[in-house]
Nucleic acid binder design. Structure first.
Lengths: 205, 205
DNA sequence: TTTTGGTTAAACCGTTTGGTTGATTTAATT
DNA sequence: AATTAAATCAACCAAACGGTTTAACCAAAA
């Protein structure tokens, strides 16, 4: 067996852990539940990943990678601010439709700040000035009279709000308001266009 | 001692429980930690509130009451849709500034749906048709040509996104982006005006 | 004075937790 | 066929958990 590629069991564990950790959170997740989900023995979890924390940080990092993998490329390279935001909105919503629980998961861990997750994220951001560059581009286009003179932080925050919150609030729709799954998905698809209209009307001069 | 009003200890317990539950979530919260926070004995927790679940549901219900106490009144009575939204935005942001962890807490519990929290919320909504009435008002103003013809769900979702998400993302600002607390608060104050501008530009004809 | 109810600290209980162990099976190598 | 190392398992363990009980303490009410 090659050491480079993961064994089937390792993959099973990762997928099971992802499901359980995202569903229950770190404290609520049980190693036995992960083992059951992966249909393996509990000892295997510790055989492949030393501890609950080690396994968890793997899952958390892959979730962050999924998110930043959509955000960073969209904001890089050429193109106007609006073009980049449009790319961000489309890519991000598509990605999250397939992993709807990721935003809540990451924000939750960020809030609890288990073992300095905040600082490790900060370090990752520092080595990559994409966001900072994008903010500078916003200010440049504001001076050029293309964009409204609104604080760049507010613009970023607004975009993220419009994209991410609908997924965080998903249980409100499917659970409390009893809106069926397919209708919720349809709303999220419609949202790409709506969000862009909102952003353009709000921040374009 | 009067039975109607809570004893000092009961209040101490509730406040300690609120802090610990909101900080750590249900699974992560420890009864001993709540007792320590309240500076009382662990036995007292069970003396006043029978179990962890009972204590937790008290906290959860009060959090929901705080939120719906701002949402429901703002949407009732006379006034145009925009006037109601403006009242909602101002009241809600003011309330959440003082309880910034409530939205995350409630949405989190909704996502995990511990012991049918979703259904109990749904029942509470059904006995109060404020939201439904407000949606009808939106459609009426759309037919009257006051509002853009956007799905009422989208409008509600957009408003909630713009209001609630910045608080859910607070750790990103104060933790990852190292924005100081006072500057974050200042942003939230600025947001009342900005959010209304965005909503008016987006949904008013 | 006696009684009552809030309060405390500590010991205790049954269960569940993350984690370990040693033995056993599997699969590739010689 | 013999050897070896990786993979898997059931059983186990110490610690921590929510919750209970006990016994003593105290202030106010009866």
């Amino acid at each position: 067996m090659k050491q480079e590629e993961k064994t089937e069991t390792e993959q099973l564990i990762l997928e099971a852990a992802k499901k359980v950790f995202i569903e229950k959170g770190y404290a609520g997740a049980r190693m036995q539940a992960i083992a059951d989900e992966a249909q393996i023995n509990k000892a295997m979890l510790h055989y492949y990943y030393r501890s609950k924390e080690a396994l968890f940080s793997r899952i958390l990092e892959s979730a962050v990678a999924t998110m930043s993998g959509q955000i960073i490329p969209a904001l890089q390279g050429k193109g106007t601010v609006m073009e980049k935001i449009e790319s961000l909105v489309n890519n991000y919503i598509d990605t999250i439709i397939q992993n709807p629980y990721i935003p809540m998961f990451v924000l939750n861990e960020l809030a609890q700040n288990r073992l300095n997750f905040q600082e490790s994220l900060m370090a990752k951001m520092a080595t990559n000035d994409t966001v900072e560059q994008f903010m500078k581009q916003i200010m440049k286009e504001q001076k050029a009279g293309i964009l409204q003179p609104v604080g760049p932080h507010h613009i970023m925050l607004t975009v993220m709000s419009l994209i991410a919150f609908p997924f965080i609030a998903k249980p409100v729709f499917t659970g409390v308001m009893k809106i069926p799954e397919f209708m919720y998905l349809q709303m999220m698809e419609e949202r790409k266009q709506l969000v862009m209209e909102i952003i353009k009307k709000s921040f374009l001069k």
